[in-house]
Amino acid sequence: MTDQALLSARSLSKHYGNRIGCTDISFDLWPGEVLAVVGESGSGKTTLLNCLSTRLLPTSGVVSYRMRDGAFRDLYRMSEAERRFLMRTDWGFVHQNPADGLRMTVSAGANVGERLMALGERHYGNIRASATDWLGRVEIAHDRVDDEPRAFSGGMRQRLQIARNLVTGPRLVFMDEPTGGLDVSVQARLLDLLRGLVQEMELAAIVVTHDLAVARLLSHRIMVMKEGRAVESGLTDRVLDDPQAPYTQLLVSSILQV
């Protein structure tokens, strides 16, 4: 890790009329670091994630990102073309529902290859080779490369979505409940896969989840949100083992023990 932040948010707020989406959020994310944002539903996690990933215009506040050339740029002062270019090269976005992040009517290979083609790759053989390679890395059999995601199970779709996002070697991935709706054994394998990829590719990630176990497994740092505010943040193990804020204490004590 370097001493320069990859992404930083300052006093980020999003209001929906009089209602608060999230308010006064500030933090830094370092290269290779995984930050989990936890909290109950309606606490503003997804609003925050969308504001950070330029999918939703914040009401106030600044989000800056360290570009590949080292310049630290305010995301909302960049042109839309630059932001969209960033989205499909240096960033990834993993949706909770894979259908939102995949093209369900084109083959798995084309889903993975789309970003490469968007970057100007014009050699079919090379695109297909990268797609097959990435399917292998997310444990999807090679002979499924021409199948549509519609023919895939939920877990496979989610892994395909991850492959589609990582094929351009991004430095930052946003994940919105990546394991939501999957059964526990599939969840465990997906988490294992994500952990491996994050480490191997030195990915920074912001993971939104309501599942504290997912946060514990994936993240280095954690931010707890309630009613649009960050009530506590710190190293994951510290926050989960020694919660300070009353709400965090409630959250941690609510985990079901099997």
Partner: peptide
Amino acid sequence: EYGLMHVKLYEDIAR
């Protein structure tokens, strides 16, 4: 942003 156009041609070749 014309990557998508090539997705269609890719699909043709794959199929």
